[in-house]
Design a protein around this nucleic acid. Sequence first.
DNA 1: TCATTTTCTGACCGTATGGTCAATACGAAA
DNA 2: TTTCGTATTGACCATACGGTCAGAAAATGA
Lengths: 215, 215
Amino acid sequence: MPDTAPISRIRSGRRTDIRQQNERMILDAAERVFAEAGFGGATMQLIADMAGLPKANLHYYFPTKEALYRRVVRNIFEIWLDAASSFDDAAGPVEGIGAYVEAKMLISRQHPHGSKVWATEVMHGAPVIQDYLETTLRDWTEGRIAVIQRWIDQGQMAPIDPRHLLYMLWATTQHYADFGHQIETLNAGHPLTDRQWREATESVKQIILRGIGAL
Amino acid sequence: MPDTAPISRIRSGRRTDIRQQNERMILDAAERVFAEAGFGGATMQLIADMAGLPKANLHYYFPTKEALYRRVVRNIFEIWLDAASSFDDAAGPVEGIGAYVEAKMLISRQHPHGSKVWATEVMHGAPVIQDYLETTLRDWTEGRIAVIQRWIDQGQMAPIDPRHLLYMLWATTQHYADFGHQIETLNAGHPLTDRQWREATESVKQIILRGIGAL
DNA sequence: TCATTTTCTGACCGTATGGTCAATACGAAA
DNA sequence: TTTCGTATTGACCATACGGTCAGAAAATGA
């Protein structure tokens, strides 16, 4: 209707919109399929069907299956890293680790497929994201170890090996995404309710915070 | 040479030996390949090569890829269940959960491939072992929950939701197998040493036992 | 030695998959 | 309307894979 719509938005916006929208649909579908079937088991045809596009159109946006997979894995990794900030601006372990657990539990609930893709990738020896592990993740880990060590030195928690504490944080929170199907089966076949998610988060927080002597 | 070798052993033993030996080699190779490539990514050819047999010979012992996969998953599940006994004959949480953590950490170290196959299977929605989840695992879980609840009622530990405690035990111990590659990368590229495995086990035990108020 | 059962294997087949391509449709600017 | 770059798609191809099979080769027992 408005004939005075912003030129810039129309000029470069419209086309980019189509591209962005299709890429998003493809990435969402790919995340699900890769999570449920693995890289080898996933087929471009199934991803295409799920995204509502012909298969040839997929290859227009993502040249190869591996390129598509790379993007999916990278997306998850970035979501993960964002949750890390919870850690930094915290005065002590109760606040910092508590917030980190909450953030990661939320991701497990909102991005279960992504978590599974990541887990599978690592289990297969990280053929695609080995460089991330050796650079970004390693740096991040060192930084957090330093933070935890400081808390220990300040007497805010017991002298736990920070490395194993981090592994435990990752393991417990991601378990609710990666093994969600098993948990659901053991929950009489029903997905966890809001209340159960809260209880899970609180249980994890309490056990770990008490376990490291921070409570 | 000895013409008086036990008849019974030769009669039914020899042939079974060949069969058992080959099945074992195939299962070991299959476990590795399935763990590293997933069901879809694994190829019968690769499993055959790794077992040192022609592909057609595989199909002589295991009619289909899925049959082979089923056997691999079942084997792991049974190893897992054996570790459960640590739980039962224990007077309290320190002894019971401590022994369980140690048993499961040992399995993570000795059967990392099996753990990965199991994890992948569950992440894919347990298409092959859903019945196990709904029967054996569910029963086992209920039994352990009762044990933990008794410990709580007896005041031997804090009132933690037993279910989430179990999930935490599974998550933390299996993490050292399933994410072994990531841990190795963060360990300067070296596998954990004996000492590091002991430290990991102790860290997990301490945090959890203190976390549930059992220490 | 001979007969029988088990084990082994190369060659082969149908199918499914990742990827290509030429042709077409579409949208924006002139 | 014409032009031009972007987006779309059906048809097609080469390959790789799971699985089959007939027959050879061992192993076993008489």
